[in-house]
């Protein structure tokens, strides 16, 4: 699964740490999600959607391997 969280974060001018605090996870977790090493749960994805003000499909995309 690919994501554009880094871009969305840049649009809102948020650091990884800021975003992590907003959704209640560690900075390392945000880093892992951005690097596609970790796929978040639905709850976390919806929290991200809430912060970015966009539907989950806008920043998470399935790739051909999924």
């Amino acid at each position: 699964m690919d994501n554009t969280i880094k871009v969305e974060r840049a649009i809102l001018n948020l650091t990884q740490d800021d975003l992590a605090k907003k959704i209640g996870v560690s900075r390392q977790t945000i880093n892992s999600i951005e690097a596609n090493r970790y796929v978040p749960s639905t709850v976390l994805a919806l929290k991200l959607s809430d912060v970015f003000g966009k539907p989950v499909n806008d920043f998470f995309k399935l790739n051909t391997d999924d």
């Binding site: 209640g24 996870v25 977790t29 749960s41």
Partner: peptide, 9 residues
């Protein structure tokens, strides 16, 4: 200290 869904996994 920083427990979230990833550390649980």
């Amino acid at each position: 200290k920083e427990e979230d869904e990833m550390t649980v996994g």
